[in-house]
C-alpha cells in the first residue's frame, strides 16, 4: 500500500511535493463545498462535465502516454451508453441493478476494445492507420445505430429508435436500507461522480508512474528499443487501449444515466473529434493537464454555444490550431511547467 501511494508522484506526472498536494486538497475541498453555494441546475451541469472527463483521461493514457492516437473513443462511449440503456430498460433499477448495468456496460466496452485492440496491436497496425481504423469503427457504429428506427429493432423491452436514440432509462440508483437513493442529475449525482473522478485520477497517477507506465512511455518514445529491452510491446499497448477504452465506456454509461438519453450522433464525426481536442489542448502527456484542460474546454464550449453551436465548433478548431502551433505540449502542461520553474527560482533565491 505504501509502495502504491509513493507512485502518486513520479516522472510521468506533473505536480509533486507538499505544495501540489495542498493545492489538490484545496481544490477538492472547494469541489465538495461547491453544491452548497451553487443552484441545483449549475451543480447538475457540472456533473454533466464530469461525465466526459473519464473518456478524456482514457485517451490521455492511450495517446499521451502510449503514443497511439485512437480516434474511436466514442465507439466505446456509445456502445456502453446503449448497453446501459438496453440493460436497465429491460431489468429496471431495483436492487441496485443500475450499478451492475454500469459495470456490465463498461466490461462490454473493455471486451470489445480487447478484441479490436488485439487485431490492431498484434497486427502491428500503428500510426495514422490506427487513427483511421478506430475512426471507421465509431462511424460504422453510428451508421448502424442510425438505421435502427423500425419497431423490429428492439432488444427485449428496449427500442433502439434509430437516429432519435434511446431514452427513458432509469438514472443511477443506489440501494439503501430505508429506500433507494436515486442519483438525479443534481447534487447526489455530482457527489457520486466527483468521488469516481478522484479515484480514477489518483488511480491513473499510480498506474502511469508504476512499471506499466514506464514501459508505456518507453514505447511512445521508441517502440523498437522498448522491445529490445525485453518488453512485449503489443501487450502493453493493448493493456493501455483496453483501460482507456473502458474509461470511454464509463463516460458513455454515466452520460446516458445523467440525461436518460443516448443517440447515434454521440458516435459521429464531431463527437469523435472532441476528446482529441480536449486532450490536446490541456496536454495529452499528463493526467492532471488532461483533467483540468477538459473541464476548462467543456465549460468554454458550453459558454460559446449560447451564440450557436456551429460557432463554438469553429472556435474549438481554432483553439486546437493555436495550441498545436504555440504550445504543442498543451496549455495546462505549459502553465504547470512555468509555475514549477517560478517556484524553483523563488526557492533558489
Amino acid at each position: 500500500m505504501r509502495r502504491l501511494l509513493r507512485r502518486l508522484e513520479g516522472p510521468q506526472t506533473l505536480g509533486r511535493g507538499p505544495a501540489f498536494w495542498a493545492a489538490f486538497a484545496i481544490v477538492l475541498a472547494l469541489a465538495i463545498a461547491y453544491p452548497s453555494f451553487a443552484d441545483g441546475y449549475t451543480v447538475g451541469n457540472t456533473a454533466y462535465f464530469f461525465c466526459w472527463v473519464f473518456m478524456a483521461l482514457g485517451l490521455c493514457l492511450i495517446w499521451g502516454y502510449g503514443g497511439a492516437l485512437s480516434f474511436g473513443q466514442t465507439a466505446f462511449f456509445g456502445l456502453s451508453g446503449y448497453a446501459y440503456g438496453v440493460l436497465t430498460l429491460n431489468v429496471g433499477a431495483a436492487y441496485g441493478f443500475t450499478i451492475a448495468a454500469v459495470v456490465l456496460a463498461v466490461a462490454l466496452a473493455a471486451g470489445f476494445a480487447a478484441l479490436l485492440g488485439y487485431f490492431l496491436f498484434f497486427g502491428r497496425i500503428g500510426g495514422v492507420f490506427l487513427g483511421i481504423i478506430t475512426l471507421s469503427v465509431t462511424l460504422a457504429l453510428e451508421r448502424f445505430m442510425a438505421q435502427t428506427a423500425g419497431p423490429d429493432w428492439r432488444i427485449g423491452a428496449a427500442r433502439l429508435n434509430g437516429y432519435n436514440g434511446m431514452s427513458g432509462m432509469p438514472p443511477l440508483t443506489v440501494p439503501w436500507f430505508d429506500g433507494d437513493i436515486v442519483l438525479f442529475p443534481d447534487v447526489a449525482l455530482y457527489y457520486g461522480l466527483l468521488g469516481l473522478l478522484v479515484v480514477t485520477y489518483l488511480g491513473l497517477r499510480i498506474l502511469v508512474n508504476a512499471r506499466f507506465g514506464n514501459v508505456l512511455v518507453a514505447i511512445r518514445e521508441n517502440p523498437e528499443r522498448a522491445e529490445m529491452l525485453g518488453y512485449d510491446v503489443r501487450r502493453y499497448q493493448l493493456g493501455a487501449f483496453v483501460i482507456g477504452s473502458a474509461l470511454a465506456g464509463l463516460s458513455g454509461t454515466l452520460y446516458t444515466a445523467w440525461g436518460q438519453y443516448i443517440t447515434p450522433s454521440s458516435m459521429g464525426l464531431t463527437a469523435a473529434a472532441l476528446p482529441v481536442i480536449w486532450v490536446a489542448v490541456g496536454g495529452r502527456s499528463d493526467v492532471t493537464a488532461t483533467l483540468v484542460g477538459t473541464l476548462a474546454v467543456l465549460g468554454g464550449f458550453q459558454a460559446l454555444t449560447i451564440y450557436g453551436s456551429q460557432y463554438a465548433l469553429v472556435v474549438m478548431g481554432l483553439l486546437l490550431v493555436v495550441v498545436v502551433l504555440a504550445a504543442p505540449e498543451g496549455l495546462v502542461v505549459a502553465l504547470m511547467r512555468g509555475i514549477a520553474r517560478l517556484t524553483r527560482k523563488a526557492a533558489a533565491r
Binding site: 521508441n222 522491445e227 529490445m228 512485449d232
Partner: peptide, 24 residues
C-alpha cells in the same frame, strides 16, 4: 520474437542509437 530472444539473454545496441529521447 525479439523480446523473447532478449529475455533468453541476447541484448543489442543498434547502429543508430536507440534511446528514449524525451525521457531523462
Amino acid at each position: 520474437k525479439p523480446f523473447e530472444r532478449v529475455r533468453r539473454g541476447l541484448s543489442v545496441k543498434f547502429q543508430v542509437p536507440g534511446i528514449f529521447p524525451g525521457l531523462t
